[in-house]
């Protein structure tokens, strides 16, 4: 069946790798984000790599007024509509300490903005009796850590939202995949200290696509993060509160 994907935050390197994987399958792609010049380049790239259709559309997680137009554009397509959410922002915790109002933007980008978008999209998926939502969460959302607990809290909220949305859409033939990447080699992590076992965006994109095809609910990528986080989640809070992992 013909597939149209909406990629939110399509300028990120993970989204780019995922878009290329979709293009190679011949899917249609709406590349949504803020940097239109960059998105247009990505659109020609996807078209050259085999996408049936690739178009740049304006999306700003902090401006819900623009959401309806994207969904209307997608609704013109035949077949199933799916969406993958790659947006999110992670200011330094110290920057947030200095200016707590940054929390609002972080939560908008990483949780409430995408959630409002997906909430509008859900009826379209239900009406068509199928479609997949991919939500990029984070291992940071599994436990609050001293280094990035605002970002982690936003992602934790997003995880819970996705879980509920999965519960809803499954009844209508839809599916929701929660993806929790570990460290990925992107512009966000470039040069950050303490990075280890860093995965290439292409590897993450392959894992996501496999999870979509196999209708997985929650995946960690690379897979071993499931075990790392299992251990981290099992540490009792009275010990964890003294750790800085």
């Amino acid at each position: 069946m013909s597939q149209t994907w909406i990629l939110l935050g399509a300028t990120s390197s993970m989204a780019r790798a995922f878009a290329r994987a979709l293009a190679a399958r011949g899917d249609s792609i709406l590349l949504a984000g803020r940097d239109m010049a960059d998105l247009k380049r990505l659109a020609t790239d996807c078209a050259a790599r085999g996408a049936a259709m690739a178009e740049a559309v304006k999306f700003d997680a902090r401006n819900p007024a623009g959401f309806a137009a994207i969904i209307a554009r997608a609704a013109r397509q035949d077949g199933q509509i799916s969406a993958a959410v790659f947006v999110g922002s992670m200011p330094e915790q110290s920057a947030i300490d200095a200016a707590p109002e940054l929390i609002e933007g972080t939560v908008s980008d990483s949780f409430t903005g995408p959630a409002m978008f997906l909430q509008r999209l859900a009826p379209e998926i239900e009406a068509r009796g199928g479609g997949t939502i991919v939500g990029i969460g984070s291992v940071a959302g599994d436990r609050g850590r001293i280094g990035n607990y605002v970002y982690g809290a936003a992602k934790a909220g997003f995880h819970t939202y996705l879980s509920g949305l999965r519960n809803r859409l499954t009844r209508a033939g839809g599916h929701v995949v929660t993806v929790k990447p570990g460290f990925v080699d992107t512009a966000m992590t470039w040069g950050l200290p303490g990075m280890f076992l860093v995965a290439a965006p292409e590897q993450v994109a392959r894992d996501i696509l496999r999870a979509v095809d196999r209708k997985k609910d929650v995946i960690y990528t690379p897979f071993f993060w499931r075990y790392i986080m299992l251990i981290i989640r099992m540490i009792p809070e009275f010990i964890f509160k003294k750790m800085s992992v």
Binding site: T11, R16, A37, D38, R41, T186, A187, W190, G191, L192
Partner: peptide
């Protein structure tokens, strides 16, 4: 970060350099 301090080398691995590397993802 924009600049990352790294050691890198030519393919022959005899000559090496330590310096600042940027890897932009957009124009």
């Amino acid at each position: 970060m924009i600049w990352k301090s790294a050691e890198y080398n030519g393919w022959g691995r005899v000559l090496k350099a330590r310096g600042e590397l940027a890897r932009p993802e957009r124009q």
